[in-house]
Structures are given as structure tokens and as C-alpha cells.
Amino acid sequence: MGGSGGGAARARRLRFDGWIAGTGTASGTRLVLGHWPHSPFGAFSDVMAEDADGHRLLLAPTRRTADFVRATYVFDAVRVVPVRVTVDGGVWTVAAGPLEWRFATGRRGPLGLALRAVPAALARRPAWSALTDRPAAALLDGVRTRGTAGGGRREWYGARDLRPLVAVSAAWEGGDLGAIAPVEPPVHFGFGSVPRTPSLVRVTSTVEQR
């Protein structure tokens, strides 16, 4: 489970272990799932959506998680709704208020295989995320692994796996969002984005707040 860690005397580090999935759609809506089996708030999932006009919406399961995520990233609107995620082999199904989203993952490429070799203890260290920040930006279309988040917070991402998404279906309030597409333009929730190529990343996120 995540919890507090080291750092300055007045700083608190919160750790989230799980997965981040990101995809674009033919309609221009881009979707980002955070699925966190281990977090300071217990197991939960949330969805960030940005439409073709740049409107950014957070779908979170409780007011507590919504307040935390909203204080860390930037949104134009927040909705507290049930967020359910089921995984059956390589197929993920997400139900979050107005959103119905299903995606299938493919085989790992060379980068995914390399990330699988990163020890979990190393991936959790902010120093490792700082070391991988520039390589990640070069290999993953500008993705950042460290940066300054909202409210004066700092954040680090330690990736441990990477799989492509090979099929996506998504509907918003019953309306089809269209076929799978690159995450383009990048989403603008915080200091970084997700890979341009639709992907599922196994990740440890560390957020430092004061």
C-alpha cells in the first residue's frame, strides 16, 4: 500500500501503484484511466477526459479522491460517479458515469520488455524517475516522468511495463466516440501527457505535498 515517505520535514510523499491507460478517439476525445489497486485512499480508479475543444473533465469515485486529484491536476469540471474497472485477460472494461470504454492490449515491444526488467523497488524511487525523464521524453513523444504538479506538489512516475492498445471502443452518454486514434494533441491535465501511441503503462506514481 502507498503511504508517507522521506523528504523534507514538512513534506509528505504519497505512493500510488497501478496502471495508466491513454487513448485518443476519432471524435477527438482523449481518455486517460488511472487504475490504482494500491494507494493511500485504498483501491480506486479515475478517468480524465479531454474533448476536441479542450474541455477537461475528471470522473472520480469519491469526493475525497476527486479533491485530491483536482488539487494535483487541472480540470474544467469534476464529477463524482461510480468508476468500475474489470480486467479479463488482455481486455479492460471501464464504466464511469457517462463513459463506457473497452480496450484490448497487445504484445509488449522492446521498450515494454526493458521496463519489465526494472525492479519494483527501483521504480518507486524519485531519483530513478528523475534519471529516466529525458529518455522517456525522447522515446515516448514528450512524456515526462517528473515535474511540478498543482498546489505546489511534485510528482514522479516510475514505469515498469508498457503494452500497446490494439482495439478501443468508447461511448459517451450512449454516443460513439469513434475508432482508436493517437493521443493528439497531447492532453493538458498536468506537467506531462501519456504516450501519443495508445498504451497501457504499469507505473508507480509518487506525489509529494507539503
Rank of each mutant, 00 (worst) to 15 (best):
G2D: 01
G3D: 09
S4R: 12
G5E: 09
G6R: 04
A9S: 05
R13Y: 08
G18D: 02
I20C: 04
I20P: 00
A21N: 03
T23H: 01
T25V: 03
T25S: 06
A26H: 00
S27K: 03
V32M: 06
V32E: 02
W36T: 01
S45A: 15
D46Q: 07
E50R: 14
E50Q: 15
G54V: 06
H55K: 07
H55W: 11
R56F: 13
L57C: 10
L59W: 11
L59C: 03
L59V: 05
A60F: 15
R63D: 05
R64Y: 02
T65C: 08
T65G: 09
A71K: 09
Y73F: 15
V74T: 14
F75H: 09
D76F: 07
V80R: 14
P82N: 06
P82F: 08
T86I: 05
V87N: 09
V91C: 13
A95P: 00
P98C: 10
R102H: 02
A104S: 13
T105W: 09
G106R: 04
G106F: 08
R107F: 11
G109V: 12
L111Y: 15
L111V: 15
A114T: 04
L115S: 08
R116Q: 14
R116N: 14
V118P: 02
V118Q: 05
P119G: 08
A123K: 00
P126K: 01
A127I: 08
W128S: 03
W128P: 00
S129V: 02
A130N: 03
R134Q: 07
A136G: 06
A137H: 00
A137S: 07
A137M: 05
L140Q: 08
R144C: 04
R144G: 07
R144K: 14
T145S: 11
R146A: 05
G152A: 10
R153L: 14
W156C: 09
G158F: 02
R160Y: 04
R160L: 13
D161F: 04
L162V: 03
A170V: 04
G174D: 04
I180D: 10
V183N: 12
P186C: 12
P186E: 13
H188W: 12
F189A: 02
F191S: 12
G192K: 13
V201H: 03
R202Y: 03
S205G: 07
T206F: 02
V207Y: 05
R210F: 14
